[in-house]
Amino acid sequence: MNADKLLDAQGLACPMPIVKTKKAMNDMETGQVLEIHATDKGAKADLAAWSRSGGHELVQSIEENGVFKFWIKKG
């Protein structure tokens, strides 16, 4: 899936993946897609909740070799 920006949050523990995602999103325009790579297992539920509460769309999330990948469209 195409993304406008990639955020590498691998190796970071809660709440850093969320904090970094928020910061990355601040610099993006509505409709743009941020791709996030994380290894924190909690990020899976957290990024879904974060997207919902912020009015963003979690377009896709997959797990690949222990890395969780997310694509979030800015709302």
Partner: peptide
């Protein structure tokens, strides 16, 4: 601080 930063990052 985890709850506080997570909340702040969620607007």
């Amino acid at each position: 601080f985890n709850i506080a930063t997570a909340a702040a990052a969620t607007d």
